[in-house]
Amino acid sequence: MSIRHVVSWKLSATDPATRAGDAAGIASRLEALVGVVAEIRSLRVGADVVGGDNWDVVLIADFDDLAAVARYQAHPAHQAAGTFIRSVVSAKMAVDFLVP
């Protein structure tokens, strides 16, 4: 079994161009962690295409176990990405679940 780590964010900006740039900034920073943080087994980031009350950006990443998730979260490169993300979002939700 492995762990699937899912995080969604609501962006703070209301201007469409700023929102698009912030979503792209989140995606590029998280995607850059692949190959840097050894614990990542797979990682996908995407911006919502529907709008409305949906969350704006989602991360879906797979890890071997909860200890690997913890090492990923503590990694300095992840911490740096998190600094940017926290600066452009108004809310976050996360779920970690077992994947057979």
Rank of each mutant, 00 (worst) to 15 (best):
D22W: 04
A23Q: 09
A23V: 01
A23S: 07
A24T: 08
G25R: 13
I26R: 06
A27P: 00
R29I: 01
L30V: 12
L33V: 05
V34M: 13
G35F: 08
G35V: 03
V36E: 05
V36Y: 11
A38T: 14
A38S: 14
E39N: 09
E39F: 11
E39V: 09
L43I: 08
R44A: 07
V45H: 13
D48S: 06
D48Q: 06
V50N: 08
G51K: 12
G52A: 04
N54R: 15
W55L: 14
V58N: 13
V58F: 13
L59P: 01
L59V: 09
I60Q: 12
F63Y: 01
D65H: 06
D65G: 03
L66R: 15
A67G: 14
A68V: 02
A68M: 02
A68P: 00
V69D: 03
V69S: 07
V69G: 03
A70M: 11
R71C: 05
Y72M: 07
Y72P: 00
Q73V: 13
P76V: 15
P76L: 13
P76Q: 13
P76Y: 14
A77S: 11
A81F: 11
F84P: 00
F84Y: 15
F84T: 06
I85P: 02
I85Y: 09
I85C: 10
R86P: 00
S87V: 06
V88D: 00
S90C: 08
S90V: 10
A91E: 04
M93K: 15
A94T: 13
A94D: 03
A94V: 15
V95L: 15
